[in-house]
Simulated scan of single mutants.
Amino acid sequence: MTVAVTGASGQLGRLVVEALIRRGAGPIVAIVRDPAKVADLAERGVEVRQASYADAEAVERALTGVDRLLLVSGNEFGARVDQHATVIRAAERAGVDLLVYTSIPGAEDNPMILAEEHRGTEEVLAKAAVPHTVLRNGWYWENYAGALPAAVASGVLYGAAGTGRVAGAARADYAEAAAVVLTTEGHAGRIYELGGDERLTYSDIAQAMSQASGAPVRYQNLPGDDYAAALEKAGIPAAHARALADADVAIGTGVLDVTSGDLRKLLGRSTTPAVEVFRAALNG
């Protein structure tokens, strides 16, 4: 059974390929825009095929002989629904047996700006002929790694999530779950709401940062507009800053407080604690 992963040079895609290798899957196909970025995977027996999400002909060539496909959501915001649809149509034409897509929790009514294109992609999938599974990935604890050095240095973690909880997990946990779905049976037609065992407020996350670093860190909540302005002042592009602040405000309403237990069930183990992810990030 041939298993392919798009975006295999990215942070999540590469981890999925690594998890597939550990599970003894094969043949494994890594679909990337730049093969040089996965030369190490090619040396380990992974077949590398070149294609971008926007190139329908290249994607279809890349899917030749593929039985199961992980479509890792792209990063070209504003173009993602069309690009994802290109891959979905190519998978239909190539006769892929199962397409697995990485989405966001509660996509159908998630208010985040970041959810809009996931919702659009799921709507395309719902009408597609290819059998599919949706992995609604919750937040990665690594999402907070960028703020970690400044929080440790200043003693303050800033955000706009209030007392909302995040059921986060390590990126590798979500990657392993994807590998499980790609290599086992009974997942077609399923939507998995994925979140970690820990359900932390931002105050809890600040405490985990403190525990990982040994330095005191507290959480300072800001109104969404103020947080967006602070992010922009720190050098983050305005549109990205607005999306990040918008995500925090939505977190405050509970949209990432996933309680399904689906991730733990797929993994067959507990998820990785935030403090372990933060400690690894600090040790670099």
Results as ranks from 00 to 15, higher is better:
Tyr101Ala: 09
Tyr101Cys: 11
Tyr101Arg: 04
Tyr101Pro: 05
Thr102His: 09
Ser103Trp: 07
Gly106Glu: 12
Ala107Gly: 02
Ala107Val: 14
Glu108Trp: 12
Glu108Pro: 02
Asn110Val: 08
Pro111Met: 09
Pro111Val: 08
Met112Asn: 00
Ile113Gly: 06
Ile113Arg: 14
Leu114Phe: 14
Ala115Gln: 11
Glu116Val: 15
His118Cys: 04
Arg119Ala: 15
Arg119Cys: 06
Gly120Pro: 11
Thr121Asp: 03
Thr121Trp: 04
Thr121Tyr: 01
Val124Ile: 11
Val124Asn: 00
Leu125Trp: 06
Leu125Lys: 05
Leu125Val: 09
Ala129Lys: 15
Val130Met: 11
Pro131Val: 11
Pro131Lys: 13
Pro131Ser: 09
His132Glu: 05
Val134Pro: 00
Val134Asp: 04
Leu135Glu: 09
Arg136Met: 00
Asn137Trp: 01
Gly138Phe: 04
Gly138Leu: 01
Trp139Gly: 00
Trp139Arg: 11
Tyr140Phe: 15
Trp141Pro: 02
Trp141Gln: 02
Trp141Gly: 01
Glu142Cys: 07
Asn143Val: 03
Asn143Ala: 08
Gly146Lys: 04
Gly146Asn: 10
Gly146Thr: 08
Ala147Gly: 13
Ala147Ser: 15
Ala147Trp: 12
Pro149His: 10
Ala150Ser: 14
Ala150His: 08
Ala151Leu: 08
Val152Arg: 11
Val152Thr: 07
Ala153Ile: 00
Ala153Thr: 04
Gly155Asp: 11
Leu157Pro: 13
Leu157Asn: 14
Leu157Ser: 03
Tyr158Asn: 03
Gly159His: 12
Gly159Glu: 09
Ala160Ser: 15
Ala160Trp: 07
Ala161Trp: 07
Gly164His: 03
Arg165His: 07
Arg165Ile: 06
Gly168Asn: 05
Ala169Asn: 05
Ala170Thr: 08
Ala170Pro: 09
Ala172Ser: 15
Ala172Val: 13
Asp173Val: 09
Asp173Lys: 04
Asp173Met: 03
Ala175Trp: 11
Ala175Lys: 12
Glu176Asn: 07
Glu176His: 10
Glu176Leu: 04
Ala177Leu: 05
Ala178Leu: 05
Val180Gln: 01
Val180Asp: 00
Val180Ala: 00
Val181Gly: 02
Val181Phe: 09
Val181His: 03
Thr183Leu: 07
Glu185Asn: 11
Gly186Pro: 09
His187Gly: 13
Ala188Pro: 05
Ala188Leu: 11
Gly189Thr: 03
Arg190His: 10
Ile191Cys: 01
Ile191Pro: 00
Ile191Ser: 12
Tyr192Thr: 11
Glu193Lys: 06
Glu193Ile: 06
Leu194Asp: 07
Leu194Val: 04
Gly195Asp: 04
Gly195Ser: 06
Asp197Cys: 00
Asp197Val: 08
Leu200Pro: 01
Thr201His: 12
Thr201Ile: 11
Thr201Val: 05
Tyr202Leu: 15
Ser203His: 15
Ser203Thr: 15
Ile205Trp: 14
Ile205Tyr: 09
Ile205Met: 13
Ala206His: 13
Ala206Leu: 08
